[in-house]
């Protein structure tokens, strides 16, 4: 069973990251400092129960393993996710993507371009090059939630 609070807890954590870490990342110039932050973002998320490490949540096409849970509020049409990966950098990148889309309504999500944040932060110049690390697969899955 998926514990429903995973989505509210994740949403709270993502908001905190949005407020605390995004401005920090925007300021930093050298890649080491950026990656240092990126690799610790995962610690901000609530515990992702190991029983959710199931094939049905696994995003195919990743070198590393990535699990994405999704919930849509039937009333507000808002989309919520919870995420885990066994690799830290992909996890950090996906968290940044989720800060851009989590809680959006279906209408808003259709318009969203969360990947632009990564270009802006110079973390991933070209999203199509990220095929091997699985980011693109996760992004496609996020967009397919509509």
């Amino acid at each position: 069973m998926i514990r429903p609070d995973i989505f509210t807890e994740t949403a709270t954590a993502l908001k905190k990251i949005y407020v605390n870490h995004l401005p920090q990342l925007r300021q930093l110039r050298d890649w080491q400092s950026k990656y240092r932050i990126l690799m610790t973002l995962g610690r901000e998320l609530p515990t992702f129960d190991s029983e959710w490490h199931r094939d049905e949540f696994l995003v195919q096409g990743c070198e590393s393993k990535a699990w994405l849970l999704h919930y849509q509020d039937p009333v507000t049409t808002q989309h919520f996710w919870a995420f885990d990966s066994d690799a830290r950098i992909v996890k950090g990148l996906v968290i940044l993507i989720l800060t851009q889309v989590n809680g959006l309504t279906a209408e808003e999500l259709a318009e969203a371009t969360p990947e632009l944040l990564l270009t802006e932060l110079q973390l991933q110049q070209n999203i199509s090059q990220s095929r091997s690390n699985g980011l693109l697969a996760v992004l496609n899955r996020v967009k397919a939630s509509l």
Binding site: W31, E63, S64, A87, R88, I89, V90, N133
Partner: peptide
């Protein structure tokens, strides 16, 4: 650590390896 993380940090330093 995951090999993909190590490889990404090497890629950042222009070292081409496979993970």
């Amino acid at each position: 650590e995951h090999p993909a993380d190590l490889a990404t940090l090497l890629d950042q330093q222009n070292i081409a390896v496979r993970a």
